[in-house]
């Protein structure tokens, strides 16, 4: 169990998160949903100490990860930023940097790292892109390469900030499929999504956040049936069952 307890934090002197507590389960996808400016991305960055918290704990098997040095946190939690630089390096080199938290003197990657990278790329189906520069890939392929980097980090927890942003629908679904595979492998997946339908259809758990505080946590079914989404987002959410699976649709309240 990954337990987030009483996180307070923000940027410099501006507090964004107020006493945030929730949990995530092993092998499950937990999506953090909330309106713009509600503190979703700040929360994700706080969980892996990219933004230092003022108080609170991130407990993995009862051990507070936030008390660890940054490189040890990176051995437990992988984080994929929403905005990524596209450096002039090959896909395999990018994936290899997933092994960076494990680098020791003399600061060079070892055979074990290359073996892990090879396995990860095979798993993500990007082995044929190994020597291709990141800048030559499509948005979806870049996202897969970054996901492979996170996987090479070999962590228990993976945090994903808007992993489907800027992708067309086909790549969105491909990326979601890969994320589900990661969860099936036993990872804790926490992701921030702005697309309510995508989150409800593809998550095991939803954490609703507004103005830096947790409004509700529950399964997509619970969250939908509580009507809380309409209050938080000021939209109407409808559900349709097709082939024994729920699909969700949003529309503005006044139309």
């Amino acid at each position: 169990m990954l337990e987030i307890r009483n996180i307070n934090g923000g940027y410099n002197k501006k507090q964004v998160l107020y006493d945030v507590s929730f949990y995530a389960q092993k092998g499950k996808i937990t999506s953090i949903l909330g309106p713009n400016g509600s503190g979703k991305s700040t929360l994700l960055k706080s969980l892996c100490s990219i933004i230092p918290v003022t108080s609170g704990e991130v407990l993995l098997d009862n051990k507070n990860l936030l008390s660890l040095p940054q490189n040890e946190i990176a051995q437990k939690i992988a984080y994929l930023s929403q905005t990524k630089q596209i450096p002039d390096i090959s896909v395999k080199r990018l994936v290899l940097h997933g092994r960076f938290p494990y680098l020791n003197y003399p600061r060079r990657y070892k055979e074990k790292d290359y073996i892990i990278v090879n396995k990860v790329m095979e798993k993500m189906n990007i082995l044929d892109l190994a020597d291709v520069p990141i800048s030559k890939l499509s948005g979806g392929q870049q996202q897969k390469a970054y996901l492979a980097m996170a996987l090479a980090q070999d962590t228990d927890v993976i945090l994903l900030d808007e992993p489907t942003t800027y992708l067309d629908i086909s790549f969105q679904l491909q990326v979601i499929k890969e994320i589900k595979n990661l969860a099936n492998d036993g990872k804790y997946i926490l992701m921030v999504l702005h697309d309510i339908s995508l989150a409800l259809e593809n998550s095991d758990n939803i954490v609703l956040i507004k103005d830096g505080t947790i409004v509700k946590q529950g399964t997509p079914k619970n969250i939908y049936e509580s009507n809380i989404l309409e209050k938080v987002f000021n939209v109407k959410v409808a559900r349709v069952e097709i082939d024994n699976k729920y699909h969700y649709f949003c529309k503005t309240k006044n139309t």
Partner: peptide, 23 residues
Amino acid sequence: YTLANELDVLTLGDESAKGLGLN
């Protein structure tokens, strides 16, 4: 030269670099 990997990780952007454990 010994810090070459640190420089490469830095070019991934500040947030990604921090996420990989770089100070």
